[in-house]
Design a protein around this nucleic acid. Structure first.
Lengths: 175, 175
DNA sequence: TTACACATGTAACACGTTACATGATTTT
DNA sequence: AAAATCATGTAACGTGTTACATGTGTAA
């Protein structure tokens, strides 16, 4: 049920069309929560039916921009404060690690190096983004501060995963 | 498609029934990958049909224990080395953080404290498990070493999340 | 005028969860 | 004898992905 609330939350910040939301999701939340456009469009229709969002304006080529209603914002608040948090940390690389014993040492070493490089580069990209936010390049709204917080989690988690990959490589030597 | 491979991987370690696998998944991988028994039973039937696992023995009350076939183990190896890793880190608390600006400061502070406590206690439990493994209480097979590696990721990630939650609380004070 | 990006949608399928159903063995 | 646990399964639903289909506005 998280997609519902995330969509309302994004619309509470500013009105947007299904298309806009698809792209924002992709760039902003794509690595944390999946959402293709078919799911977004159908969820938007449901949300409109439930009165949690409403059409704000119609643009060219059938573009419909939605905004969150008061009921919608209240529902997101309720979700944030009352609904129990799901702590499942779903991460395929971690699942794979349970089966490392099936890989031969060379393959494992190569794999771990690729993984570490991936996490490092992602952490670096997020660091740049965070630095830009800290320089005030996106203003200083509460929304930007929340994004800064999420970015910080991304940085720390990816740093951690990079270090972990390196640690695995060192504690299970090739030969 | 990860469930398929995880099931074969578990069966490569030792034969088990659908029931056994359900419980092992729950306790071992439940916080990293979801799998209820209906999904496991139906996946086992498919895997048997594909020749990747086979019935090893039949026990009381219709219990069927499966083991991985050679083709099955080969398929897991192929997955580990050739199939691209999905790096999506699906984590609801991180999604929620993007919308922290919608929470009032008191609620947020309380929320962050609960979160930090959760991560700390989970990290501590994993630390105990890891220590037991390091003391050799589970022997020293390659399988146990892989589990130790996975546990290390859990420890580090949960520590990171606990620190992050604390950091958020400190950088966005209540009053 | 052609190509690209915008914009919305449906259909079919794969994956995951919840509820329901059934019955056997073991423990109390 | 009753209760708990073992063990397997189906049905219905909800969520997420892929492929397909359609057409508009804008820039090269």
């Amino acid at each position: 049920m998280s997609l519902r609330h995330a969509l309302i939350g994004l619309l509470a910040e500013q009105p947007a069309s299904g298309w806009d939301l698809t792209r924002r999701f992709e760039e902003l939340l794509g690595s944390v929560w999946p959402a293709g456009h078919p799911q977004i469009y159908s969820e938007l229709r449901r949300l409109e039916g439930d009165g949690l969002i409403e059409v704000e304006s119609q643009g060219p080529r059938g573009r419909k921009a939605y905004r969150a209603t008061e009921a919608g914002v209240a529902e997101v608040r309720r979700w944030l404060t009352e609904v129990e948090v799901d702590h499942t940390l779903r991460l395929e690389p971690l699942l794979r690690s349970v089966f490392f014993w099936l890989m031969n040492p060379d393959e494992l070493a190569a794999h771990l190096e690729r993984e570490a490089a991936y996490y490092r580069s992602l952490a670096d990209r997020l660091r740049q983004l965070a630095a830009a936010k800290d320089r005030g390049e996106f203003g200083d709204s509460p929304q930007v501060r929340s994004l800064r917080i999420a970015a910080e989690a991304g940085i720390r988690l990816n740093d951690t995963l990079a270090e972990w990959s390196t640690w695995v490589g060192e504690s299970s030597p090739t030969a």
